[in-house]
Nucleic acid binder design. Structure first.
Lengths: 167, 167
DNA sequence: TATGAAACTTGGATCGG
DNA sequence: CCGATCCAAGTTTCATA
C-alpha cells in the first residue's frame, strides 16, 4: 500500500453545505480546469480509488456545489464577436420589478445581476453584429420597460477563468 | 448512396475559422449544454457515428472553436459569495498601458475586457468577503497604477448561460 | 467493548472510445 | 479491443453507547 498518501477511511467531508474538505476541493478544482477529465485521471490526482472519486463527484453534484459542465467556446468562431454590458433601470419604480424573469427568454443575455449603484441590473450580452445589438436593446426596453445604458466591449483579454479555490 | 447521411470522409466543416457546418453546430451546442456528455450521446443527437463525432470534436478543439471544458460551480459553495465589477482607468495616460497583463496574476479576476466608455477596462471579480474585496482593489491599484470604480453585485439571477447558436 | 454509520477498496459486468 | 464507468460486496475507521 501507499505510504505517501493518507490512510484510507479517514475523515471524509463534513455534512455542512460548504466545501471544506480538501479532497473535494481538489476534485472540484480538477473538474473546473478540465470538465472532461476521466474519473481515473482525477483519482490519480487526489490519491483515491476511482469509485471513491465517483461517489464524491456525485455528491458534489447532488449538493449543488457543481451545477453543470460547459464547453468554453471561442465567441468569434461561433459568430458572437460583439459583446456588451447593458445596465438597466426600471422606468416606473412604483411597478413590481421582475426584469430578470421578463428578460430570461432573450438567449443573447449571458448573465444578469442586480447591482449596487445607479442602475438596478447589469446584463452581459453577446451578439453577432451592431445591428443585432441594436435589436436586442430594443427588445430589452420593450420586454422589461426599462431604460438602458450600454457599454460595448472592444476587446476581451480573458474571461471564464476558473474559480480559484483555497488550499 | 444515402443523401440523408453524409458519407465518412466527405465534405466536413469548411477550413475557415468560422462555424458554418450545421452538424458541428449541433455538436458544439450539445457540449456547451453538457460538457460531460459521452460521444455516443452526442452521436445520437446529431445522427452520426461515434467515430465521426469524435473526429469532428477533435477538429473543433484543434481549430480553437472549443477552447476548454469547465465545471460550473456554485460560488456560495466554494466560498466566493461576493462578486463585483471593477472599472479601471490608468492614472497616467502617457505611460504604456498593459494593465491586463499586470493584473493577470490576480486569481480573483475572472474576466478582463477593454471597453468603450469612461473607463479603459472592466473586470469581473469574485471574493469571499468585503475585506477581501478591499484588499483586491488595493492590489489592482498598486499592480497596474490605475484608478478604480467598483460596482458590487447584490444578487446574481443567472450567469454562464450557454451561448445560443443559430440553427 | 460492542455496534452502526460513513467512506474506501476491490473485482467483475457493462458500456463507451 | 482497450479503457472507462458502474455496481455490489467486503474492509477499515470513527463515534457512539
Amino acid at each position: 500500500m501507499s505510504v505517501l498518501e493518507d490512510a484510507p477511511g479517514d475523515g471524509g467531508p463534513r455534512a455542512g453545505a460548504h466545501l471544506d474538505d480538501p479532497i473535494d476541493a481538489k476534485i472540484v478544482q480538477e473538474m473546473s480546469l478540465d470538465a472532461r477529465a476521466t474519473l481515473s485521471q482525477v483519482s490519480q490526482v487526489v490519491g483515491l480509488s476511482v469509485s471513491a472519486v465517483q461517489t464524491r463527484l456525485r455528491r458534489l453534484e447532488a449538493r449543488g456545489v457543481i451545477t453543470g459542465y460547459r464547453a468554453i467556446l471561442d465567441p468569434e468562431a461561433v459568430g458572437k464577436s460583439l459583446s456588451a454590458f447593458i445596465e438597466i433601470t426600471p422606468l416606473d419604480p412604483s411597478q413590481p420589478d421582475n426584469a430578470p424573469e421578463l428578460l430570461e427568454h432573450l438567449a443573447e443575455i449571458e448573465a444578469c445581476h442586480s447591482i449596487a449603484g445607479d442602475a438596478s441590473y447589469i446584463l452581459f450580452v453577446r451578439v453577432a453584429t451592431p445591428r443585432d445589438l441594436e435589436a436586442l436593446i430594443r427588445d430589452i426596453r420593450l420586454a422589461a420597460s426599462v431604460r438602458t445604458r450600454t457599454t460595448v466591449v472592444l476587446q476581451t483579454f480573458y474571461e471564464n477563468r476558473p474559480i480559484s479555490l483555497p488550499g
